[in-house]
């Protein structure tokens, strides 16, 4: 099997990028973000990106970097607080935003990865999130049709990865990564630690290697904390 491992993010992205493409990105807030790949995406200069991501980063970090450089033209997200530049661009009509309830977003990405074109959910019935969507009654209850999401490229962050592409995530840095990893036929995983095949017990693999086309080392691993809250020593 040819190696999936690339020396760095720029090498892994080479030949894959085009203006107007759709990119799905894992992470929740700044937790479990593919930081290295996002910086490489910025440096590539690719434009008019349609980004699927639960959040939009913060000013100056994560997807906030791509907003500052005006490389994103459309986002599908559930929550974009904590980002003034995003809010400014959105209110000024410079960026197109589709708000999607967080569970619906996760399920739309999951469905896209699993070959399911759409599904019915009660989430969002009667709200702005239901506008323009088919509604159907099941057992007397209202549901709306939500369509699957797929991407030209998916970027995820993992804690450990082996040479077969099997991945393990760390704690709540898992979040959207195990679904985002499935929603494209070109997924790049950025991993904190490469381990030999077999080092991850087969029963403990979170994402099997079939979903991972390329892997890069997490050269940038800042792991910024958005809200540091501590208690005093007991």
């Amino acid at each position: 099997m040819a190696s999936k491992r690339y020396d760095n993010a720029a090498a892994a992205l080479d030949g894959l990028l085009f203006d107007g493409m759709t990119i799905a990105v894992g992470g929740f807030g700044l937790c479990g973000l593919p930081e290295t790949l996002i910086v490489a995406l910025r440096d590539s200069g690719v434009r008019d990106l349609k980004v699927i991501s639960n959040n939009a980063g913060v000013d100056g970090w994560g997807l906030g970097l791509l907003l500052e450089s005006r490389q994103i033209s459309r986002m599908v997200s559930s929550y974009v607080g904590e980002n003034k530049e995003f809010e400014r661009q959105h209110l000024a009509g410079e960026i197109d935003l589709e708000f999607c309830p967080q569970g619906t977003l996760a399920e739309r990405i999951r469905a896209g990865g699993a070959g399911i074109p759409g599904f019915y959910t009660r989430t969002g019935v009667g709200t702005l999130a239901a506008e323009g969507k088919e509604e159907r009654i099941f057992n007397g209850e209202r549901f709306i049709l939500e369509m699957a999401l797929t991407a030209d490229l998916a970027l995820v962050k993992a804690w450990r990865g082996d040479e077969r592409g099997n991945l393990v995530y760390n704690k709540t840095a898992r979040n959207f990564n195990p679904v985002v990893v499935t929603c494209s036929h070109m997924t790049i995983a950025e991993v904190e630690e490469f381990v030999p095949a077999g080092a991850i017990p087969a029963d403990h693999v979170h994402t099997p290697g079939v979903y991972v086309k390329r892997m890069v080392p997490a050269d940038i691993n800042e792991k910024r904390v958005e809200k540091l809250v501590t208690r005093s020593e007991d």
Binding site: F28, G29, L30, C31, G32, N54, E82, Q102, G103, L105, A106, E107, I109, R110, W159, Y169, N170, K171, T172, A173, R174, N175, F176, N177, P178, V179, K223, R224, V225, E226, K227, L228, V229, T230
Partner: peptide, 26 residues
Amino acid sequence: PDLINAGKETITELLGTSYVSSAESF
């Protein structure tokens, strides 16, 4: 930094905690 709650605050785990994906969580 890999352990936060939905409000993005740092948090801790307990004996018996489990972690899941966003799809599983929802």
